[in-house]
């Protein structure tokens, strides 16, 4: 999981891996609960992405700073309490700045506490890395998460309500696919996006294999996902 030791651990590498190569949603399939629940419109996706970004970056910085001070036995509890503190801050801030969006997202802002992505990054990376790398990792992972949220949210809003960020796109003749903003649409659309992602990855792998003169060796058999 953690790229420590695989690539040279530079600031840039740690940053990019979260956006693309180890994208938390499309590759690692972490943090799906908030992902599916709030992506029925692009604006909700942006709010959720922003809140998660704040919590992940803040708690990664704090955990990385305190990594020598936290006793090993109680580390998970400590991480959770740190995360819960940042989530409380994000929750109250959003409530004050954008009450309408906060109402729409409901309990899901509070549920960032149990987003496995955040706890996973603390355990796998921030607790072992110096401040600079922890920052790069957190920004990359949170950016990748926000990008995935935005892409799913946009697709679902365009298909489900015929608009994007509230602006109508197709005019009144468009018959919206209501199922897309309902729960089943979330599952199915994420499934399809993962499918496209897997297909692109396999195609690239096959092309690389052909270029190396290993035609017929086939791409990576089966996806290692679970």
């Amino acid at each position: 999981m953690s790229a420590l030791g695989k690539d040279p651990a530079t600031f840039y590498n740690e940053f990019v891996k979260g956006i693309w190569k180890e994208n938390p949603i499309f590759v690692q399939v972490l943090g799906m609960c908030p992902m599916l629940a709030v992506t029925n419109s692009a604006i909700n996706a942006v709010a959720m992405g922003g809140a998660t970004f704040f919590v992940l970056v803040g708690s990664s910085l704090l955990v990385s700073l305190l990594r020598k001070a936290i006793p090993k036995q109680v580390r998970i509890t400590t991480y959770i309490i740190i995360i819960a503190t940042f989530v409380t801050v994000a929750d109250f801030t959003l409530q004050a700045l954008a009450p309408a969006v906060h109402k729409e997202l409901g309990a899901f802002i509070a549920l960032i506490v149990v987003n496995c992505l955040i706890l996973g990054r603390q355990e796998a990376f921030a607790s072992k890395a110096p401040l600079r790398l922890a920052l790069a990792d957190a920004v990359g992972m949170a950016g990748g998460f926000a990008l995935a949220l935005l892409s799913l949210g946009s697709v679902r809003e365009v298909l489900g309500s015929g608009s994007l960020f509230g602006f109508s796109l197709f005019g009144p003749r468009f018959e919206p696919w209501v199922v897309m903003i309902l729960p089943p649409g979330g599952f199915i659309m994420l499934g399809l996006l993962l499918l496209v992602f897997g297909w692109a990855k396999e195609r690239r792998a096959r092309r690389a294999a052909v270029e190396l003169g290993e035609a017929g060796a086939g791409g990576p058999a089966g996806r290692g996902g679970r």
């Binding site: 089943p184 979330g186 599952f187 994420l190 499934g191 499918l195 396999e202």
Partner: peptide
Amino acid sequence: PAIIRGTALNLIIAGLLSLAFM
């Protein structure tokens, strides 16, 4: 098909189940 096996297939199954529950 091999490419859909794994998470993508599970998500689509879950979507159909969710549709049924509606």
